[in-house]
């Protein structure tokens, strides 16, 4: 029974990491940038929802629907942040040394963190959701209600992104740019705009995850790093450029970490997950769902 509980805990948390990692994978695959400021989008999303509630209702608490109502705002704001990040900053180092692109996005992450620290102090803040207690108990396994909402939310967001990429015209343009930017420009696709849109979409999803994080844990200015790191592990795990891979990678990583934390100790989680990553890379260098190197 304990193992079932660990795995459920892991899946619930893993879905959130997965949704963040999906955006990280998308930027990596389409724009060919490893965005080290991706975790900061989670943080900014959490704060946007926190302040939207605090400033309109005078308190950072509300019913589940009120909290979910902040999502459209957060998605809009974070889309704009991501779009501008690419258009104004990252664009300038596109196609240069990988090291330079890492440096620029790392710099952006530090700058955003420090600005957040100045603006909102280091105090952790959280959104209190009414009706969140008591937790559900399903077949002996405890499932906190908001974690379940967050879990479902993460799936809806990832599914919506997947459908958008497959079905929409912009989605087709995004996939075209990821496969061949030169050819994309030739058929009339605005490559810069498409790349910035990809940044915007990925950031919007990370921001939406931030809202859930603010309800089940808390937000504080330096929380972003762990999301960036985990995204990196998950994406390498699942295969660069694969959205289903990132999703499954996130769920797997969450389950493994919660189980290790429960059975051994939480201090071992990172050691075990990175060791697994190394083993996987030896056995399957392209990740679980990565495409084989093209012939």
């Amino acid at each position: 029974m304990a193992l079932a509980q660990f795995i459920v805990n892991g899946l619930l948390v893993g879905a959130l990491f997965a949704a963040v990692a999906v955006g990280f994978a998308l930027i990596w695959g389409v724009v060919d940038i490893i965005n080290l400021a991706h975790g900061e989008m989670v943080m900014l999303g959490g704060y946007t929802a926190y302040w939207a509630l605090a400033l309109t209702t005078g308190t950072a608490r509300g019913g589940p629907l009120v909290v979910l109502a902040t999502l459209p705002l957060v998605v809009g704001v974070l889309f704009a942040v991501g779009y501008l990040l690419q258009r104004v900053l990252v664009k300038r180092v596109m196609g240069t040394d990988v090291f330079l692109t890492l440096l620029v996005t790392f710099g952006a992450s530090i700058a955003i963190q420090q600005l957040a620290l100045r603006a909102w102090t280091a105090n952790p803040r959280s959104i209190q959701v009414e009706l969140a207690d008591p937790s559900l108990v399903l077949g002996g396994v405890v499932v906190p209600k908001m974690k379940l909402v967050a879990f479902l939310g993460a799936f809806v967001l990832t599914g919506a992104l997947w459908a958008f990429l497959q079905r929409s015209r912009t989605g087709r343009a995004i996939r075209a740019v990821s496969q061949n930017p030169e050819a994309a420009a030739l058929v009339g696709i605005d490559v810069e705009h498409t790349r910035a849109t990809t940044f915007g979409l990925s950031s919007a999803i990370a921001g939406a995850v931030g809202v859930f994080v603010a309800t089940i844990l808390n937000v504080q200015p330096q929380m972003g790093l762990i999301y960036t790191l985990k995204s990196f592990v998950i994406v390498v795990f699942g295969g660069v450029g694969s959205i289903p891979g990132a999703l499954l990678g996130g769920l797997l990583l969450g389950s493994v970490e919660e189980t290790v934390a429960g059975v051994i100790s939480s201090q071992w989680t990172l050691a075990v997950s990175f060791s697994l990553l190394i083993v996987l890379l030896i056995v399957k260098p392209n990740g679980l769902f990565g495409q084989e190197a093209s012939e």
Partner: peptide, 20 residues
Amino acid sequence: TRVFGDMTVRKNLLVAAQEG
């Protein structure tokens, strides 16, 4: 050639038409 290798032949044509 500059085709989109991971898309089907049909999708390639649709992408080419969409901006026009």
